[in-house]
Amino acid sequence: MTQNNTINITHFLILDDGKKALDFYVSAFGPTEKTKHELPDGKLNAELIIGNASFLLVMKSRNLAT
């Protein structure tokens, strides 16, 4: 029996302007949008997929250690 020891790493990009970044990544790389959350305060978080890789666009927050 073969054991699959695959490890997945999800990259987080912490941004000042999620909408601008999302527009850029979509036009530059044509990713699939897996999820997109637009908050009432105008912040935007999204998960994008390019090929077999996924990454998260996360708006900068005082709650994140950056």
Rank of each mutant, 00 (worst) to 15 (best):
M1L: 10
M1H: 12
T2E: 12
T2M: 11
Q3I: 15
Q3T: 13
N4A: 11
N4G: 01
N5F: 14
N5W: 09
N5P: 01
T6G: 08
T6V: 08
T6M: 11
T6N: 10
I7A: 09
I7D: 05
I9V: 14
I9W: 00
I9N: 03
I9T: 12
T10D: 10
T10P: 00
T10Q: 11
T10Y: 02
H11G: 03
H11Y: 09
H11K: 06
H11E: 00
F12W: 13
F12G: 00
F12K: 04
L13H: 07
L13R: 04
L13E: 07
I14V: 15
I14G: 01
D16N: 14
D16H: 09
D17R: 06
D17M: 01
G18I: 03
G18V: 02
G18M: 07
K19A: 15
K19N: 07
K20P: 07
K20C: 03
K20H: 05
K20W: 01
K20L: 11
A21D: 08
A21Y: 06
L22C: 05
D23H: 07
D23Y: 01
D23L: 07
F24S: 02
F24K: 01
Y25F: 12
Y25L: 03
Y25P: 11
V26W: 01
A28F: 10
F29P: 04
F29M: 11
G30S: 13
G30H: 14
P31S: 10
P31R: 11
T32K: 12
E33D: 02
E33N: 05
E33G: 01
K34L: 15
K34V: 15
T35R: 14
T35H: 04
H37G: 00
E38R: 09
L39M: 14
L39G: 00
L39W: 10
P40E: 08
P40D: 15
D41N: 15
D41V: 04
D41L: 05
D41G: 02
G42F: 13
G42P: 12
K43L: 05
K43G: 08
K43C: 10
K43Q: 15
K43P: 00
L44W: 03
L44N: 05
N45D: 13
N45W: 14
A46G: 07
A46N: 09
E47Y: 04
L48W: 05
I49Y: 05
I50E: 05
G51W: 08
G51R: 04
G51Q: 09
N52S: 14
A53R: 10
A53G: 06
S54K: 13
F55K: 07
F55G: 08
F55N: 06
L56Y: 12
L57V: 06
L57W: 06
V58C: 09
M59Q: 12
K60Y: 05
K60W: 03
K60C: 01
R62L: 08
R62W: 00
R62F: 03
N63M: 05
L64R: 14
A65S: 12
A65Y: 07
T66D: 08
T66N: 05
T66L: 15
